[in-house]
Simulated scan of single mutants.
Amino acid sequence: MHMNSAPHLLTEDRPEYERILDDALRHAHERPDLAAVGERLNPVQLRTMAMAATALITAAAATEYEHYVKAREEIRAATAAGRDEDGEPDADPAGMNHSGAGIGVVITVLAPVLAGTAAVIFLLIGYILRALDPPPAFARTMVGAGWFFAAATAAAILVAAVGLLITALRNGSTSLAAEEQGEELPEDVARAREAWRHALLERGILPFLRDALADPGAAPAARVPHRSPNRIPKIGYSRPDFSSPGDGPAAAPRPTFTSPDFTSPDFGGPEHELD
């Protein structure tokens, strides 16, 4: 016996599998062979069944998936090797960015709090002193300092709001650029991924959905596309070959057994001899 195992679907590729499945269910009404969707089984039920049989469905496109993963890993390895060989320091060191950003965040958060606290203290003490008779000479100074810190608090809050808005816009544009860059794959990897998507849809998902609609009570393993015996790679251990009796060497002659001879009581043995 030998083992031919199809590669398992990696976690990073599971969302792609779900997107292809959802797209197939969304456009099922456009395919005559899936016209029964919603009659025997609804899209939610079909999706649940397909997710439970992910390993069996993806095995239909195991060859294309293996090629896609290999091409992707080669590109990643080459990219990592290029970075290691470059050896140039980052133009924007992480330590400086983190320290500068950390100080800015601390100042932005603490400035309104400290200024507001000082404003409350100075105003409270100043107005209490002004209520005395006669009021101390520095009571007016305390009140003026309180209003100054109140204005500083308002300014700090405004600066913090503007800073948060700028940071949010900058992070949004950066993430969008990263997503667009992530979609730009090398030509070999893009072709391999497209081939896997097509094989997964045509040889895995659609046959599974057709079989599920034709026989909703069948077991998930029975719904694996089986129209072409060479379409799906074998998973696990292959069964041993059993040949028919006519194909193998000549079989040894079978032993024969004869039934014992039973005679009538008159001839059953010495004890029954006639006197």
Score class of each variant (00 low, 15 high):
Met3Phe: 10
Ser5Gly: 02
His8Cys: 10
Leu9Phe: 09
Glu12Val: 06
Asp13Thr: 06
Arg14Ile: 13
Glu16His: 07
Arg19Trp: 04
Ala24Phe: 05
Leu25Gly: 02
Arg26Asp: 09
His27Lys: 04
Asp33Lys: 09
Val44Glu: 12
Arg47Gly: 00
Ala50Tyr: 12
Ala50Gly: 07
Ala52Leu: 14
Thr54Phe: 03
Thr54Gln: 12
Ala55Glu: 08
Ala55Val: 09
Ile57Lys: 05
Ala61Asn: 09
Ala62Trp: 13
Glu66Asp: 09
His67Ala: 15
Val69Gly: 00
Lys70Ile: 07
Arg72His: 07
Arg72Lys: 08
Ala77Thr: 10
Ala78Thr: 01
Thr79Lys: 15
Ala80Leu: 11
Ala81Leu: 11
Ala81Glu: 12
Asp84Ile: 09
Glu85Leu: 12
Asp86Met: 01
Asp90Phe: 14
Gly95Ile: 10
Met96Leu: 14
Ser99Cys: 02
Ser99Glu: 05
Gly102Ser: 08
Gly102Glu: 10
Ile107Glu: 13
Ile107Trp: 11
Pro112Ala: 06
Pro112Lys: 12
Val113Phe: 15
Ala115Arg: 07
Gly116Phe: 06
Thr117Phe: 13
Ala118Met: 15
Ala118Glu: 11
Ile121Tyr: 12
Ile121Glu: 11
Phe122Ser: 07
Tyr127Asn: 10
Ile128Lys: 05
Ile128Ala: 08
Ala131Val: 00
Phe138Gly: 01
Phe138Pro: 00
Thr141Lys: 10
Trp147Lys: 06
Ala150Ser: 11
Ala152Ile: 01
Ala152Met: 14
Thr153Trp: 14
Ile157Pro: 05
Ile157Leu: 15
Ile157Cys: 14
Val162Ile: 14
Leu165Asn: 01
Ile166Glu: 12
Ala168His: 09
Ala168Phe: 00
Leu169Tyr: 00
Leu169Phe: 02
Gly172Asp: 10
Ser173Pro: 01
Thr174Asp: 06
Ser175Thr: 15
Ser175Met: 07
Leu176Phe: 05
Glu179Pro: 00
Gln181Ile: 08
Gly182Leu: 05
Glu184Pro: 01
Glu187Ile: 04
Val189Glu: 14
Ala190Cys: 03
Ala192Leu: 07
Ala192Phe: 13
Ala195Gln: 15
Arg197Pro: 00
Arg197Asn: 11
Arg197Met: 05
Ala199Met: 07
Ala199Glu: 13
Ile205Met: 04
Leu206Trp: 14
Pro207Trp: 12
Pro207Thr: 03
Asp211Arg: 13
Pro216Ile: 08
Ala218Lys: 13
Ala221Tyr: 15
Pro225Glu: 10
His226Pro: 01
Ser228Leu: 11
Pro229Lys: 08
Pro229Glu: 13
Asn230Val: 12
Arg231Glu: 12
Ile235Pro: 15
Ile235Trp: 10
Ser238Leu: 04
Ser238Phe: 02
Pro240Met: 00
Pro245Asn: 09
Asp247Pro: 00
Pro249Trp: 04
Arg254Lys: 08
Ser259Cys: 03
Ser259Pro: 02
Asp261Arg: 01
Asp261Leu: 10
Phe262Glu: 01
Asp266Val: 06
Gly269Pro: 00
Glu271Cys: 04
Glu271Asn: 03
Glu271Ile: 03
Leu274Ser: 03
